[in-house]
């Protein structure tokens, strides 16, 4: 247990002293994961809503594929994006490899299926309640998607948090496409992996404690905002 005691002591010390290097890593982690969630939400939520309302041939296959993509190994996603963004790859011109932009893309690819699959699940229930009403207004499935997304916004915030959690906990993909460059693409998870490599286990664990504290804070903040918004809407 000494290791754990040491880790917590270091973690508290780091948070208390607001170590600038740590702060930089924390801010980058938050920025990258937030951007990834928004990017993935832009694709995933409408897709999930559409799958909840539309009935078309092959829909079940799409749903199964989405559910399976939730298990996409991060290393595979990272490798695929690495090959796409590499100078020798089709998108090499963009010069995005080993930049935070590449990390955003990798995390977005990983969590978009999660957002879509969970949103479909959440919104399907809502759609069953509203289908009659919306149809009586003459709204087809396309028109229903925005209404459904708005009405389900409180439930969807949990979906977004799930995406954020997965994105900020991810290490395999961002290590490959970001390169863990100090002061540029080093985020919490890759810093933890690095300190583990150096055999600096208490420091690595302490960074893990800090990461969990951040994720907890973000979740709590969203909970508070959601409650406030729900009260106002009621």
């Amino acid at each position: 247990m000494e290791d754990f005691d040491a880790a917590f002591a270091i973690a508290i010390g780091m948070i208390g002293s607001a170590d600038p290097a740590l702060l930089e890593i924390v801010v980058l982690s938050l920025k990258v994961s937030a951007a990834a969630v928004l990017l993935a939400a832009l694709v995933g939520l409408p897709l999930g809503a559409l799958l909840a309302v539309a009935r078309f041939p092959g829909r079940r296959a799409v749903v199964v594929a989405l559910n399976a993509l939730m298990g996409l190994p991060p290393v595979v996603a990272g490798l695929a994006i690495y090959l796409l963004l590499s100078r020798s790859g089709p998108l090499g011109e963009l010069g995005l490899l080993f930049t935070p932009g590449a990390m955003v893309l990798a995390q977005a690819v990983l969590i978009a299926p999660i957002l879509a699959a969970l949103a479909r699940q959440v919104l399907e229930g809502l759609w069953e309640e509203y289908a009659e009403q919306l149809r009586s207004f003459g709204a087809g499935p396309w028109r229903a998607v925005p209404s459904l997304l708005f009405d389900g916004r409180f439930a969807l915030s949990t979906v977004l948090l799930a995406g954020f959690g997965r994105a900020s906990a991810e290490v395999g993909a961002v290590m490959i496409v970001g390169g863990n460059i100090e002061g540029f693409t080093r985020v919490m998870t890759t810093a933890i992996a690095l300190e583990t490599s150096k055999g600096n286990l208490p420091l690595a664990l302490a960074l893990g404690v800090v990461l969990m504290a951040i994720v907890l804070t973000v979740n709590a903040a969203v909970q508070v905002l959601r409650d406030a918004a729900a009260r106002r809407a009621a």
């Binding site: 937030a34 951007a35 010069g95």
Partner: peptide, 19 residues
């Protein structure tokens, strides 16, 4: 707006200029 704000830091430098 939130999306634009979140993505801005990553596209601040135009890729063409960086290349």
């Amino acid at each position: 707006a939130a999306l634009a704000a979140a993505l801005a830091p990553f596209v601040a430098t135009p890729p063409a200029a960086r290349a």
